[in-house]
Design a binder for these strands. Sequence first.
DNA 1: TCCTGTGAAGTTCTTCACAGCC
DNA 2: GGCTGTGAAGAACTTCACAGGA
Lengths: 222, 222
Amino acid sequence: MPQSMGAMSLPTVERLSVYLRTLKEALAEGKDYIVSTEIARRNGFTAAQVRKDLSCFGSFGVKGKGYDVKKLIEQLEEILGLNRRWNVAIVGLGNIGKALVKYKGLKKAGFDVVAIFDIDPNLVGKTYRGVQVYHTDEIGKVAKKNDIQIAIVAVPKEAAKEAIKKVIDAGIKGILNFTEVRVPIPEGFFLKNVNLLGELESITYYMVNPDRVCRCYQPVKR
Amino acid sequence: MPQSMGAMSLPTVERLSVYLRTLKEALAEGKDYIVSTEIARRNGFTAAQVRKDLSCFGSFGVKGKGYDVKKLIEQLEEILGLNRRWNVAIVGLGNIGKALVKYKGLKKAGFDVVAIFDIDPNLVGKTYRGVQVYHTDEIGKVAKKNDIQIAIVAVPKEAAKEAIKKVIDAGIKGILNFTEVRVPIPEGFFLKNVNLLGELESITYYMVNPDRVCRCYQPVKR
DNA sequence: TCCTGTGAAGTTCTTCACAGCC
DNA sequence: GGCTGTGAAGAACTTCACAGGA
């Protein structure tokens, strides 16, 4: 196990998750070892970056040979908290909420959708795809009973502030926010925003101002 | 109009889109002027950051008073390319694709879904929510005919490489990739990845390693 | 007085380049 | 010879702090 681990930056953590995917791909291709250059090439990073990121938690590469694919997968899964399962709630059973409940990738990646919350009386009390739908006011009680650790909030923006407040009050520490609303959160909670329109708008910015792209700023280069 | 605009960094561009949303909120509240401190407070940024970002394209603030809300909205919309409409194609009519077609926020923000592409013979040739579904092989032809500028790719990961290749071959310059696959793209194209599992995995990282959060790394602080 | 716009300082993140090991 | 791990250098980004205008 990693010895003296310092803090890891968000960019690094996000890349680790990309590396993990690459490693699984390599494993599926029957590779035993993979070199930093190859991990980098497949994702448009630099090899130095890959090595530095990985060196944050000890030395798992073999000089002259590369990284043991299986071992590194295990390491990354441990670091990212993926050597266990997580109980997830979907808050808001609209278009996105439904798509998320149906999305099989969640379960495959270790995330079990164990509850849905909505305010629509036509939905509350029923199940959707085998998952019980509760009223949003019940988050606190249900979160405790079902040991929910993560909430994915996908409600209309008008309801977002209130919904996130309830999630926080329920003590659910991990929040993925699909709404465009920004909410301050207390210490010890971890919120990430997924902002579809924001992403589109930075694409349109570059399309309108192709000259003002500084460092060619696609996540994937080369 | 902006005088000597230098390159703008991706973080800046992404924040502009947040500012724009804040300004519209302020407008709806009847505010004529807004100060940098207030824009910052609502989003968890610093006031200096807001001012610096905005100063990239000229001086639109009034010293001692703040920013003219209406004027700044217009400016930001111009900068971000939102003073026009965009034709968007959805590639892949699965759960996410369907949710996107139904999502009204797209149209409101200036993005018209004008075509859908899929390979399922049960879908091709029909319409979904009033939008024609074509076979993915027809992207080139349809993109030209319908003047499609942006493609949102939401196909299963096995099909992702191929689908993105077709989008590029069709000359669609803006790509929003909902799959976890990373693809290198040619110059002049702009791709952004939206990675649901990656986001969840950085949340679980912080939940498992609360001590290794460097700068408290939620997009929204305070 | 209040708030913007901005150089300068400070911090974080990335790349370089090479010692060291297989 | 090939590749990792890592200090040191460099680039990018953020914050500070204050001059100057309304």
